[in-house]
Design a protein around this nucleic acid. Structure first.
Length: 491
RNA sequence: CGGGGUGUAGCGUAGCCCGGUUAUCGCGCCUCGUUUGGGACGAGGAGGUCGCAAGUUCGAAUCUUGCCACCCCGACCA
């Protein structure tokens, strides 16, 4: 019964697709590059949203909503920005359809051509900064701390469910500050929020760092990121936070009067995480039997499955099961009791395993007689029988243990797959074998970065924030280097 | 967007090279019965524009052309 319908991790791409589809997270839509997020997948995303949204609000941000459509002219105001996104923008040119001549369908009405074409947002910096101009006049209006949850569209050549789709869901924070230092502080603060979320809730350790100019967000002065390591040894950028300097303030003429009465451009940040995090969740923890969810993000961390013969027995079990459910819920644990008569216990076991439910409780006649219940944990697949009287505490502790265990396993994996390397041949070998991340010296030039990419397929994921300065030589050019950076193949 | 591959019932497939009754098998689905501690068993049943569109032909799942979608590998990107 192992690996039911799931390709093994040796074929990582196929394995990933199998899990996303079979665990009911998402499926492909009829529209190229888009996905349908199914209820179970969306429930996980809602959990992520709820946790992050709370953190955003705790750090002083407010939610707002800006339009999907952006006037084309806005995008041309910040040169680097348009450079970065022009190639992947969807454009709205008309506003009406009409019945075709032969009456069999609809066609675009040529008379309904827009005077100014509209862009479906690939990100909202431009429309937001155009709006901020009207919101900011004095230092008293600052800081402006805005977030929005929305969809964006980037016309991708090659898509993969969650990891890269043309339309995806995300949040984008946009802030304006009076001082450069405040904007920088904000940028770093939100990076910390993301890192904390990733490690405490997703149970994925991340490296916080700075992007090289090559990898920097179009229009940013600095891009910070968190990088996670997936089970196939590739790195995944899980969140970004940008210090925008005064670039957008200048492009959209957002000025404020200082206490001294001088007019100055505001300083800005923007930061975001997307449904890509769903992909990270799958690739970091899951196994050949399916999805493995950290309890903190599982739509229901506990499922109870009754095992019974006949309605009479079910009635008895129902009574006890509901009692257990209430006890667990009293501890703040969400529980699904699956007493559907349309599926057999064995089928349910397999299904919840595939869906990655952290803890499964099985309750049968034998348990009723012995005052026990069977507990199975998804991460290790261990089963034990527990006294029913103490089940709430047991499960509560177990969920915490699973959460910690997943993080520890992921951290161990990263420790074993992040090596300091000083020899380029060895570097190449590591990349060829897909052995993960490499910490190496780099001379700081884009040329070297590019050459290394060509020869190894690895890119600089980030310059870690906690790096200790040490003198060394660039792994490729042997030129002097002051610190190590993280290289890896990336998603 | 370039290279390779795939497309037959909800899913996985046989048939295609070499055109010819009613398109194969498994899973799933429906009904009835027996079952229920790791994807139950028996009997019966439903379900198909063979990805789409043209073409060749007496006749196309099968041959030709075009298109579409998906998967894998590149370039691009979060």
């Amino acid at each position: 019964m192992e690996n039911k319908g799931i390709t093994s991790r040796e074929d990582f791409s196929q394995w990933y697709n199998d899990i996303v589809i079979k665990a009911g997270l998402a499926e492909h839509s009829e529209v190229r590059g888009c996905m349908i997020i199914k209820p179970y997948g969306y429930a996980i995303w809602e959990k992520m949203q709820a946790i992050l949204d709370k953190k955003f609000k705790e750090t002083g941000h407010e939610n707002a909503y800006f339009p999907l459509l952006i006037p084309k002219s806005y995008l041309s105001k910040e040169a680097d920005h348009i450079e970065g996104f022009a190639k992947e923008c969807a454009v709205v040119t008309h506003y009406r359809l009409k019945t075709s001549e032969d009456g069999t369908g609809v066609v675009v009405d040529p008379d309904a051509k827009l005077e100014e074409e509209l862009i479906i947002r690939p990100t909202s910096e431009t429309i937001i900064w155009n709006t901020f101009r009207g919101w900011v006049q004095s230092y008293r209006d600052l800081p402006l701390l805005i977030n929005q949850w929305c969809n964006v569209m980037r016309w991708e050549m090659r898509t993969r469910l969650f990891l890269r789709t043309s339309e995806f869901l995300w949040q984008e924070g946009h802030t304006a500050h009076a001082l450069e230092s405040e904007a920088l502080e904000e940028t770093e603060k939100m990076l910390d929020v993301y890192a904390d979320f990733s490690e405490k809730f997703m149970a994925i350790p991340v490296i916080k760092g700075l992007k090289t100019p090559t990898e920097r967000f179009a229009g940013a002065v600095e891009t910070y990121c968190i990088e996670g390591l997936m089970q196939d040894g590739k790195a995944l950028q899980m969140g970004t936070s940008h210090f925008l300097g005064q670039n957008f303030a200048k492009a959209f003429d957002v000025k404020f009067a200082t206490k001294e009465g001088k007019l100055e451009h505001v300083w800005a940040s923007s930061w975001g995480v997307s449904t890509r995090l769903m992909g990270a969740l799958v690739m970091a923890h899951s196994d050949d039997s399916g999805l493995v969810l950290p309890p903190q993000l599982a739509p229901y961390p506990v499922v109870i499955v009754p095992i019974y013969k006949g309605e009479e027995q079910l009635a008895e079990i129902n009574e006890v099961a509901f009692e257990i459910k209430s006890k667990l819920e009293a501890k703040g644990i969400e529980v699904k009791y699956d007493n559907r008569d349309t599926h057999k216990p064995g089928w349910k076991f397999a299904d919840y395993e595939l869906k990655g439910v952290p803890v499964r409780l099985a309750l049968g006649k034998r348990d009723l007689e012995n005052g026990t219940i069977e507990v199975a944990r998804r991460d290790t697949k261990e089963k034990t029988t527990v006294e029913r009287a103490t089940i709430d505490k047991y499960v509560d502790d177990l969920l915490k243990e699973i959460q910690q265990n997943l993080f520890d396993k992921a951290l161990d994996f990263r420790k074993n797959n992040l090596q300091k390397i000083d020899d380029f041949d060895e570097f190449k070998k590591v990349m060829k074998e897909g052995k993960g991340m490499v910490s190496a010296h780099w001379d700081g030039t884009a040329e070297t970065e590019q050459k290394i990419k060509e020869q190894t397929k690895a890119t600089i994921r980030c310059i870690p924030l906690d790096v200790i300065d040490e003198d060394g030589e660039c792994i490729l050019t042997k030129k002097p280097s002051k610190r190590r950076v993280i290289f890896a193949k990336a998603y």
